[in-house]
Amino acid sequence: MNQMIETLLNHRSVRSFKSKALDQEQIEAIVKSAQAASTSSFIQAYSIIGVTDQEKKDKLAEIAGNQSYVAANGHFFVFCADLHRHKVIAEMEKADLDDSIESTEKFMVALIDAALAAQNAAVAAESMGLGICYIGGIRNDLEAVKEVLKTPEHVIPLFGMAVGYPEQETDLKPRLAMEHIYMENEYLQDRSVFEKQLHTYNETTSEYYRARTGGKREDTWTGQMARMLGRKSRMYMKEFVEKQNLNKK
Rank of each mutant, 00 (worst) to 15 (best):
Ala72Pro: 09
Ser40Phe: 11
Ile49Asp: 04
Thr52Cys: 10
Asp53Leu: 10
Val14Ser: 06
Val88Phe: 07
Met92Arg: 14
Met92Tyr: 15
Asp23Arg: 01
Val78His: 14
Ser100Asn: 15
Ala90Ser: 15
Gln24Leu: 03
Ala64Met: 00
Val31Lys: 00
Ser33Pro: 06
Leu97Thr: 09
Asp23Val: 07
Ala64Lys: 00
Lys59Met: 06
Val78Arg: 12
Asp96Cys: 03
Leu8Asn: 01
Ser41Asn: 13
Phe77Arg: 11
Leu8Tyr: 05
Val51Ser: 08
Val51Cys: 09
Ser40Ile: 07
Asp98Leu: 10
Val14Lys: 04
Lys94Glu: 04
Glu62Gly: 03
Gly74Cys: 05
Thr7Pro: 01
Lys57His: 08
Ala71Leu: 01
Gln54Tyr: 12
Asn10His: 07
His86Arg: 14
Ser100Leu: 12
Ser13Cys: 10
Lys18Tyr: 00
Asp96Ile: 09
Gln67Gly: 12
Asp23Lys: 03
Lys87His: 07
Asn10Pro: 01
Ala95Ile: 09
Ala90Tyr: 02
Glu62Thr: 13
Ala29Thr: 08
Arg15Pro: 02
Leu22Ile: 14
Glu6Trp: 03
Gln44Thr: 10
Gly74Trp: 05
Lys32Leu: 11
Ser68Thr: 10
Asp99Gly: 12
Asp96Val: 15
Glu6Arg: 12
Ala64Ser: 04
Lys57Ala: 01
Ile101Leu: 15
Phe76Val: 01
Leu60Gln: 02
Ala81Asp: 04
Leu60Arg: 03
Leu97Ile: 11
Ile27Gln: 02
Ala71Ile: 01
His84Thr: 10
Ala45Ser: 07
Lys94Phe: 11
Ile30Gly: 01
Lys59Glu: 14
Phe77His: 14
Lys32Cys: 09
Thr39Ala: 09
Glu6Pro: 05
Ser47Gln: 04
Ala71Met: 03
Glu102Gln: 12
Thr52Lys: 12
Lys94Pro: 08
Lys18Ser: 00
Gln24Met: 03
Ala90Val: 05
Thr7Ser: 07
Asp23Thr: 02
Asp58Pro: 09
Ala29His: 05
Lys94Trp: 08
His75Leu: 14
Phe17Ser: 02
Ala34Phe: 09
Cys80Pro: 08
Glu93Arg: 13
Gly50Thr: 15
Asp96Glu: 11
Ser13Thr: 13
Gln67Val: 11
Gln67Ser: 15
Gln54Trp: 02
Cys80Ser: 11
Glu55Cys: 06
Phe77Gly: 14
Glu28Tyr: 10
Ser100Cys: 13
Asp58Lys: 12
Val51His: 05
Ala72Gly: 13
Ala34Leu: 08
Lys57Asp: 04
Glu6Gly: 08
Ser68Leu: 11
Ile63Thr: 00
Thr7Gln: 03
Gln35Thr: 08
Arg85Leu: 06
Leu8Ile: 07
His84Pro: 06
Glu62Met: 03
Ala95Ser: 15
Val14Ala: 04
Glu28Trp: 03
Leu8Met: 07
Ser100Phe: 09
Ala45Asp: 04
Gly65Arg: 11
Asp99Met: 12
Lys87Glu: 10
Ala34Trp: 09
Arg15Lys: 14
Lys56Trp: 02
Lys87Thr: 06
Asp99His: 13
Ser13Glu: 04
Ile63Gly: 01
Asn66Cys: 05
Ile101Tyr: 10
Ser41Val: 13
Ile43Asn: 13
Lys18Pro: 00
Phe17Ile: 05
Ser40Lys: 05
